[in-house]
Simulated scan of single mutants.
Amino acid sequence: MDMNLHIKTTRVMFVIELMWLFKTTPSQLVIHLALVSVLSFALSTAEENTCSLDTECVELMKTIVDARVKEMESEIENRVWNRIMDAPTVATDTVLNEAKPVVPECDFEYEGKCFKFHFADVMSFAEARSQCERSGGHMANIYDRAHVDMIVDAIRKREHANFFLFIGMTYDLNSDEVKWHNGTTSSYTRWYPQSNFPQKTHGLIRLIVLPFATGMLNNIGIDDANANGVLCETPQVVE
């Protein structure tokens, strides 16, 4: 093998090794460093023995590579992991920060709580609940008449047709009571006027907002329910 070619090859492999040292996963890096070390050793051995790339030489190099892998395995693994463990904090912190819920900007505040609308043409109950959980909160309670009036005003400024909204309240079929998200009995209800609500068949409550009336409905089950949005609630952050 030509000496200049061998030197250039070794230099290229060294640069590649440095690049991988800072950009790869530990398992990939172990494998790569092993291959780099093995190939470098095999090239130098081939040069010393001045063998050509015939069948005999290929078999010789294969034998050398197999032996070298076994010798280098433990050494390379220790070296790589020691290098990586010197500075693990940045990557770990990044993952943890991404997992933390982000408190959304409020569409409005009421009684020290933050309320945020999420709208869609069609939204399932599972999608609504997931949307609120991703923002670090839950589907909203309605606390009193002033509160529901704020909700209705905000929706009517945006929507001019019939609008169904998921909220966090439920109807207890056994006690005939409306419950907040945490199971506490609500002191306020507003069933849709001039209707047969609450019905004795379903616990899910949605809020319907029409141009001329508004109120709570419990006419459908969770698996079949859809809405045009959800109202999420989070504790207000005091800065």
Results as ranks from 00 to 15, higher is better:
residue 105 E to F: 00
residue 108 F to K: 05
residue 108 F to G: 00
residue 109 E to W: 06
residue 110 Y to K: 05
residue 110 Y to E: 03
residue 111 E to R: 14
residue 112 G to A: 04
residue 113 K to N: 12
residue 113 K to H: 04
residue 116 K to Q: 02
residue 116 K to P: 05
residue 116 K to R: 11
residue 119 F to Q: 10
residue 120 A to L: 05
residue 122 V to I: 09
residue 124 S to G: 15
residue 125 F to G: 03
residue 126 A to W: 05
residue 127 E to K: 11
residue 129 R to S: 10
residue 129 R to D: 13
residue 129 R to C: 03
residue 129 R to W: 04
residue 134 R to F: 12
residue 134 R to A: 12
residue 134 R to M: 13
residue 136 G to T: 08
residue 136 G to D: 10
residue 137 G to M: 05
residue 137 G to R: 07
residue 137 G to T: 05
residue 138 H to E: 08
residue 138 H to Y: 14
residue 138 H to S: 08
residue 141 N to D: 11
residue 141 N to V: 10
residue 144 D to V: 11
residue 146 A to W: 08
residue 148 V to H: 01
residue 148 V to P: 07
residue 150 M to W: 04
residue 150 M to D: 03
residue 151 I to W: 07
residue 152 V to R: 06
residue 152 V to G: 02
residue 153 D to S: 14
residue 154 A to N: 07
residue 155 I to Y: 04
residue 155 I to K: 05
residue 156 R to L: 10
residue 156 R to S: 08
residue 157 K to A: 14
residue 157 K to I: 12
residue 161 A to Y: 12
residue 161 A to L: 15
residue 162 N to L: 11
residue 162 N to H: 07
residue 163 F to G: 00
residue 163 F to Q: 00
residue 164 F to A: 02
residue 166 F to Q: 02
residue 167 I to T: 00
residue 167 I to Y: 01
residue 170 T to E: 14
residue 173 L to T: 12
residue 173 L to W: 06
residue 174 N to S: 11
residue 174 N to R: 09
residue 175 S to Y: 09
residue 175 S to R: 15
residue 175 S to T: 15
residue 176 D to Y: 00
residue 177 E to S: 14
residue 177 E to T: 14
residue 178 V to H: 06
residue 178 V to S: 01
residue 179 K to S: 10
residue 179 K to Q: 12
residue 181 H to L: 09
residue 182 N to R: 10
residue 183 G to D: 09
residue 184 T to Y: 12
residue 184 T to E: 15
residue 186 S to R: 05
residue 186 S to H: 03
residue 187 S to Y: 01
residue 188 Y to I: 06
residue 188 Y to M: 02
residue 188 Y to N: 05
residue 190 R to V: 03
residue 190 R to K: 15
residue 192 Y to Q: 11
residue 192 Y to T: 06
residue 192 Y to C: 08
residue 194 Q to R: 13
residue 194 Q to P: 07
residue 195 S to L: 12
residue 196 N to Q: 11
residue 196 N to G: 09
residue 197 F to P: 01
residue 200 K to M: 14
residue 201 T to S: 15
residue 202 H to Y: 13
residue 203 G to N: 12
residue 204 L to E: 10
residue 206 R to I: 02
residue 206 R to G: 03
residue 207 L to M: 11
residue 207 L to W: 00
residue 208 I to N: 05
residue 212 F to E: 14
residue 213 A to I: 12
residue 214 T to L: 04
residue 214 T to Y: 14
residue 216 M to R: 03
residue 216 M to N: 00
residue 216 M to V: 03
residue 216 M to F: 15
residue 219 N to H: 13
residue 220 I to S: 02
residue 222 I to E: 14
residue 223 D to G: 00
residue 224 D to T: 00
residue 224 D to K: 03
residue 225 A to V: 09
residue 226 N to R: 09
residue 226 N to G: 00
residue 227 A to L: 07
residue 227 A to S: 15
residue 228 N to Q: 09
residue 229 G to H: 05
residue 229 G to A: 07
residue 230 V to G: 10
residue 230 V to A: 02
